[in-house]
């Protein structure tokens, strides 16, 4: 390993530690796709314009192409595959499926992340607030309408939304399962 241009990075990816060497200028997106093979994180532009690479990073939604892998060292990263057992995300995924909100599907992982992030911050958004909440994520297939319908359908009916928000913001990625449970983590489903 060239110490000047590379470093060893450990991230907590979907609650599992993952370690690999990353280049100094390597984005978190490249690290996730090429090193961790987390291919559910998509690359639509690589420069922050499209939102297909959105992940939860340290409790916040980010476009992973705009974060350096090195910045993620020691941090918790969730992709949609890691949130599959989270009640809010599962509801959103099901709602996207039921509403026909998925056409080519390439924007879907990022779009779901934006929807999840929005509902954590604002559990009952108006339609216009939903539009604002996903404005950083491009979709070329749907015209956004069915995506907004899908999000609106979940918005009304998830009382557990704010609790999910707390759990993911937990600052200690190495917490034991017991500690996580205490922190309300296991809204993620017990694991």
């Amino acid at each position: 390993m060239d110490q000047l241009t590379e470093s060893m990075i450990t991230i907590f990816l979907n609650d599992q530690p993952f370690q690999a060497v990353a280049g100094a200028s390597e984005s978190l997106l490249d690290f996730l796709r090429h090193r961790a093979l987390a291919t559910e994180v998509k690359c639509g532009c690589g420069r922050g314009d499209c939102g297909t690479c959105a992940v939860l990073f340290d409790g916040r939604m980010v476009k992973s192409c705009l974060v350096l892998a090195a910045q993620a060292n020691g941090k918790r990263v969730y992709t949609i595959r890691g949130l599959g057992r989270d009640a809010l995300m599962a509801n959103l995924q099901d709602s996207f499926i039921q509403h026909g909100a998925i056409q080519c599907g390439f924007c879907t992982p990022g779009m779901l992340m934006a929807a999840y992030n929005l509902l954590r911050i604002k559990p009952t958004p108006t339609r216009s607030e939903i539009r604002q909440g996903i404005a950083g994520n491009l979709c070329r297939c749907t015209g956004y309408q069915k995506i907004i319908d899908a999000i609106a359908a979940v918005a009304g009916k998830t009382a557990f939304v704010s609790e999910a928000a707390d759990s993911l913001d937990s600052p200690n990625p190495t917490a034991t399962d017991q500690e996580k449970a205490k922190a309300g983590y296991l809204l993620l489903g017990g694991g």
């Binding site: 559910e40 599959g84 879907t108 779901l112």
Partner: peptide
């Protein structure tokens, strides 16, 4: 009927692989 598409579930889960996802 507006039944969900065959590919909607795999796309929503992130499991469906697009061309660049193969190695």
């Amino acid at each position: 009927q507006s039944v969900p598409k065959y590919d909607a579930g795999p796309k929503a889960s992130g499991l469906l692989q697009y061309a660049d996802d193969f190695t």
